[in-house]
Design a protein around this nucleic acid. Structure first.
Lengths: 226, 226
DNA sequence: AATTAAACCACATCAACATGTGGTTGTGCT
DNA sequence: AGCACAACCACATGTTGATGTGGTTTAATT
């Protein structure tokens, strides 16, 4: 995803971003540290080579650093970044977790998001972009690398039209109304057709999907089968 | 989401992006047209004020313009942008659809993505950023505005456990039956209780969840709210 | 003992749903 | 021209769902 960089002054006056980094590759870790340390709005509080090292450093409340955001790899020696999120969130419930990784397949992406990551960046991303992403996340937004964002969009996108798709466009509109919890009358009013037309569409939808109730239609729809 | 702008030369040599715009607000429509027309890599093929106008313009295969990408609002007079995606995809199955809208609530976002949009941009986004997003999408990536990306991340994020769970164990069994598409009678038979007991449970479930229909219960359940 | 809550149940009314049968119109195809 | 299909519509019947009111029993808590 591409946007113009925010003017520097927009971050002046803000508190510093307390950052942690968990990265096993020494070159990447040092590049990140060197680059991010240069910016006056970023304070690197903790750097670790593994999840175990990181968790050990935050176990004791007395010595635990205040953190706003962390950059974390997925593939780490020992516990993975994804597995570590659960433990991290116990100590820092409000922490913004940004995954920084080479993995771009759906499983890793959604496992990260479902675990609690709020941003997912490909390691092929320039350092300046990573820094902008940190600022964006800190302001309450999120950053996904363009290829990641595309995968997320594709996750939701209807699957490729199969030969002989089960439902027509109009029928799908009716289904959407059902899924939205509308009554037949409401659907009729919304689509500007008669309630008997809605009933007729529903009869055909039930026949096509081999179901006999609204509930079954809703479930098929929400589970991506329509 | 924020990234450094791509160097201009990266797009040189590429074919022009054949673009369509569907936007009812005249000021926005003209701003977009004027700004995007300036770039040599963008060719605006079609502009419409409504979905109906757009669909009318693409009905005839002989006069239908070649399109690679379109920018579309959601709230349009008559058919909404989301509703129109079904029809558009029939004529342009491979078209990249970028939603450009003021709406930022989850329902619109996910309805758009589920309908087939591959990018969702807030109207508060600068024109230069919109143009960069067009290039990103055309290259196979996607762009989501930072606030949109955050909502998507939050959609997957585990929900905070509320104090005092809403439903009892038995109620959850009833809910499972509803989600499975069972009728009241079927649930009664399955749990070996009377249909009036099922009705009573459902009354209490509806009150606890603040809903009034099976459909809403199913939706809340499949979306992880129960 | 008294109270509360969950689970169970009954009866009632009205609206919505599921399904059947029958029809017209417009569009696209052969 | 004839056919098929989608979309539209009407009327009908029986079932299911939503909701209201009222009740009993059991277990846990105070």
């Amino acid at each position: 995803m591409v946007v113009l960089p925010l003017p520097f002054f927009q971050l002046c006056g803000m508190e510093k971003i307390n950052l942690a980094i968990v990265e096993d590759d020494p070159l990447i870790r040092e590049s990140l540290e060197n680059f991010l340390t240069e910016h006056p709005s970023v304070k690197i509080r903790l750097i670790a080579k593994s999840m175990e090292e990181f968790l050990a450093a935050i176990t004791d409340a007395a010595s635990r650093p205040a953190l706003d955001l962390m950059l974390m790899d997925i593939e780490l020696p020992g516990m993975s970044g994804i597995q570590g999120i659960y433990h991290i969130k116990q100590k820092y419930p409000e922490l913004d977790i940004v995954m920084l990784t080479t993995f771009e397949e759906e499983e890793k992406i959604f496992n990260s998001l479902c675990a609690g990551a709020c941003s997912y960046i490909s390691k092929r991303t320039p350092l300046a972009t990573i820094r902008e992403a940190i600022f964006t996340v800190h302001r309450g937004g999120s950053y996904m690398s363009p290829s990641i964002a595309r995968k997320i969009a594709q996750h939701f996108m209807p699957k490729e039209r199969k030969e002989g798709e089960l439902l027509s466009a109009r029928q799908k509109e009716i289904v959407q109304g059902i899924v939205d919890g509308l009554s037949y009358k409401m659907i009729a009013d919304k689509l500007d057709i008669s309630i008997d037309t809605v009933r007729d569409h529903i009869k055909r939808i039930y026949r096509a999907l081999e179901v006999n109730s609204k509930a079954e239609v809703i479930r098929k729809s929400l589970e991506g089968e329509i």
